[in-house]
Lab assay of single mutants.
Amino acid sequence: GAPPLPPYSAGGREVTMKKGDILTLLNSTNKDWWKVEVNDRQGFVPAAYVKKLDSGTGKELVLALYDYQEK
């Protein structure tokens, strides 16, 4: 199953993602919540729920390892 959710501390809205989604990583300075862009929406997802990909394009991409439903 998915890892436990860290307390929400990102101070911005969250976004929903599905397992297998490829998201653009915008900011990973917060260790628990990373800012991503998905379907032209920006928001935060739990860092433990995604994995960085080596895209080779200069853009940082992450793979959704679990479904996440915004609150």
Rank of each mutant, 00 (worst) to 15 (best):
G1T: 14
G1I: 06
G1D: 14
G1P: 14
P3T: 05
P3M: 06
P4Q: 09
P4I: 08
P4R: 07
L5W: 06
L5C: 06
L5G: 04
P6N: 03
P6M: 02
P6G: 03
P7N: 09
P7F: 06
P7V: 06
P7W: 05
P7Y: 04
Y8S: 13
Y8W: 11
Y8V: 12
S9N: 12
S9I: 10
S9L: 11
S9C: 11
A10R: 06
A10D: 05
G11S: 12
G11V: 11
G11N: 13
G12V: 07
G12W: 10
R13S: 11
R13N: 14
E14W: 07
V15F: 12
V15H: 05
T16R: 08
T16A: 11
M17E: 00
M17Y: 02
K18E: 05
K19G: 04
K19Y: 04
G20L: 02
G20P: 00
G20N: 05
D21H: 04
D21V: 04
D21S: 06
D21N: 06
I22Q: 04
I22H: 04
L23W: 03
L23V: 05
L23N: 01
T24W: 13
T24P: 13
T24N: 08
L25C: 05
L25T: 01
L25Y: 02
L26W: 04
L26E: 02
L26M: 06
N27I: 07
N27K: 06
T29V: 08
T29H: 10
T29E: 15
N30E: 06
K31F: 08
K31R: 12
K31T: 08
D32R: 06
D32I: 08
W33P: 00
W34T: 02
W34H: 02
K35S: 07
K35C: 12
K35Y: 15
K35V: 13
K35P: 01
V36C: 05
V36Y: 01
V36E: 01
V36K: 00
V36F: 01
V36M: 01
E37V: 08
E37W: 07
E37A: 11
E37C: 09
V38H: 15
V38G: 09
V38K: 15
N39I: 12
N39M: 13
N39G: 15
N39R: 12
D40H: 15
D40E: 13
R41I: 15
Q42M: 10
Q42S: 12
Q42V: 14
G43I: 06
G43Y: 07
G43K: 02
F44N: 03
V45L: 02
V45F: 00
V45R: 00
P46E: 00
P46S: 01
A48I: 10
A48Y: 05
A48V: 11
A48L: 12
A48M: 10
Y49I: 03
Y49F: 10
V50P: 01
K51T: 12
K51L: 14
K51V: 13
K51R: 13
K52F: 08
K52N: 06
K52L: 13
L53A: 03
L53T: 05
D54G: 14
D54V: 14
D54E: 14
D54I: 12
S55W: 15
G56V: 13
G56N: 13
T57F: 10
T57G: 15
T57Y: 12
G58K: 09
G58F: 09
G58M: 09
G58R: 08
G58T: 13
K59W: 09
K59N: 10
K59F: 11
K59Q: 14
E60Y: 10
E60Q: 15
E60V: 15
L61T: 10
L61S: 07
L61G: 03
L61M: 11
V62P: 00
V62Y: 07
V62M: 04
V62I: 06
L63M: 14
L63P: 00
L63V: 15
A64F: 01
A64E: 00
A64Q: 00
A64P: 00
L65M: 09
L65H: 02
L65D: 01
Y66M: 05
Y66N: 04
Y66K: 05
Y66T: 03
Y66L: 04
D67S: 07
Y68L: 04
Y68S: 02
Y68Q: 01
Q69D: 14
Q69F: 14
Q69T: 15
Q69N: 15
E70Q: 13
K71I: 10
K71D: 14
